[in-house]
Amino acid sequence: MGLHGSEKNTEDKRIWTSRSIGSYIQHQFFYALIRIGGRRLAYFFLYFILAYYVLMRPSVRRRCYFYLSHRFPGESSLKRIAHGYRLYLNFGMVLIDRAIIGILGNEMMSVSFNQRESLKNLVSEGKGVIFLMAHAGCWQVALSALGYLKTRVNMVIRREEGDIDRHYFEHQSNDTPFNIIDPEGYLGGTIEMINALKNGEIVSIMGDRIFGSLKNTVHVDFMGEKALFPFSAFKVASATGSPIALLFTHKNGADHFVLDLAKVIHVPEGLGRSGEGYLPYVIEFVKILEGYAETHPFQFFNFYDMWRPSP
């Protein structure tokens, strides 16, 4: 994230989009399948629909090749298509899973988390906690399993015009369980983030996405090449004294996810304005993310060019 609301210029365009490849009707179709036949029926149709997209739409294939060409360098075109299909299939399943939670309830999906007490202790320190996550596994499933913390969660997420897939809580008629902070709002939502942390709350940020300007990013080696990562979360942590909890999820069964508190990072204050001071902490995050992609290659869901050269 870059946390910028009004600093865009032609050099600093966001390099990813959250827009779905599916149409509104297709999403509604899957929501209906979930209501009628649950997960199995929705998964069944997913196999065929994704086969069409991967085979017939080169633009869809292209979106996953940025990652796959780094994760599996030198593989044949045929293999890459197979890997692309597998990656999209897992992604589709995760989207269905999160819709299942929203439509049929949390109990439809189980989450193992062995570090419940560690995370609870971190939250109870009262300094606020930054959950630094990534588009890997299903972060929404992770958050749905953290209700035991009894602490307000503030999610820094951007809803783009044209977004048609719903977050799991958007299927429910009751109020959202989270406070949403728009990273492209006034001053990137930073004032809201700081005040939430000051109140001992949780602020959840994606560490692998850039909003707005590229100014607050650093280049870090990622799968053999320099990739752009934001250092914003680390700067917020430095200014507020809040610890950063690196949280990752992976799916290891049809209805089961594993949540992992991979690391807790404490960022000292006074690291300056440039990204240099924050680089070691970003590297820690990126190393863990790289390890995740090694272990769960088809649960890493960034469909944009993270490795594009700096502007």
Partner: peptide
């Protein structure tokens, strides 16, 4: 200044003057 400087600025104002900027409206 950019939005990340706002993070520091909010903390600085509180540290030096004990004044909180509580929300976006106050920030504006």
């Amino acid at each position: 200044l950019d939005s990340l400087d706002a993070v520091e600025l909010v903390v600085i104002i509180q540290k030096h003057f004990n004044v909180e900027i509580k929300d976006m409206d106050e920030g504006r």
